[in-house]
Amino acid sequence: MTSTFLQFLFSGLTLGAIYALAGLGFSIIYNASHVINFAQGEFLMIGAMATVSLVGLGLPLELAIPLAVAIAAAVGVALARFAVVPAGDASVVTVIIITIGASILLRGVAQVVWDKEFHALPAFSGTVPISVLGATMLPQSLWVMGVSLAAILALGWFFGRTMAGKAMLAVSYSRLGAQLVGVPIRRVLLTSFALSAGLGAIGGIVVAPITFTSYEAGVMLGLKGFSAAVLGGLGNGLGAVLGGLVVGIAEAMSAGYLSSAYKDATAFVIILVVLFFLPNGLLGHKGSERV
C-alpha cells in the first residue's frame, strides 16, 4: 500500500520536475516583456535534438551539451533580433502570434535539418533504478530535479543580485520608465531570449533520456510548461517549479487512483480550481492594473 502510494508519488515527482524545467523558461521572457513565448517548447526540442545529432557525430556528451545549449541560445537571440525587436511596440497578443509563427518555423527547420524519428539520449548516471521502500525511481529523475533546483537558485540570484537581471525586471514593470533611466531595452530583450532558450535547451537535454525527443517534442513540453508557469504565478521561477510539481503529482495520483484516461483532465481541473481562488497563481503577486 505504502509502496504503491510512494510509486505514484515518484512518478508524479518525475513528471513534475520535467514540467517545472519546461516552465522555467516562460518566466524569464515574461519578466522582460510580458509575452508568453509559444516557441519555448521548441527551445527544449532544439537542445535535445542538437545534442542527439552532435553525439551522433561522435562528440562526447560533455562537449555536445554545451554546444547544443549555445546553438539554442543563438536561435533564441536570432528570434528576438529578427522577429521580436522589429515588432517594436506591437501589442502583447501580436508578439505572441509572432512566437506561434516562430514555433511553426522552428519545427519546420528541425524536420528538414534532422528527421522525423524519435531519439533517445543515454541516461547520465545509468538506468539502475533507485529503490525506496519498494518503490523505484530512475537516477535521471534526480538529475531533472537537481537541475530544476539549480536553475531556480541561479535565476533568483540573477534577478535579485545582478544588474542585468534587475534591468530586466525594471523593463517588465515599466518599459518607458526603464528606458528613461537608461536601461537598454533592446539588449534586455535579446538577453532574456538567450537566457530562456539556453535554460530551455538544458531542460530539454536533461529530460530527453526519460521522454525521448523528436522534432515535435516541444509541443507537449511547451503546453505543460506553460501550465506549470501560469499555475505557479507568471514571472516567478519558484512558482513555475511548484506549478510543475502540482501538475505532475496530480496526473500521477489521478492515473494511480482515479482513471488513467482522465489524468490530464484532473490536472487541468486542479489548475482551474486554483486559479478560481488565486487568480494570479500559487505564488503570483496581486498586480495592480495600469489605468
Binding site: T94, I98, G108
Partner: peptide, 15 residues
C-alpha cells in the same frame, strides 16, 4: 519546407 514558409509568412506579417 511548408511549415518553414508558413512560419516565415506569419512572423513577417505580424512584424
Amino acid at each position: 519546407y511548408e511549415s518553414i514558409v508558413l512560419g516565415l509568412i506569419m512572423i513577417g506579417t505580424m512584424v
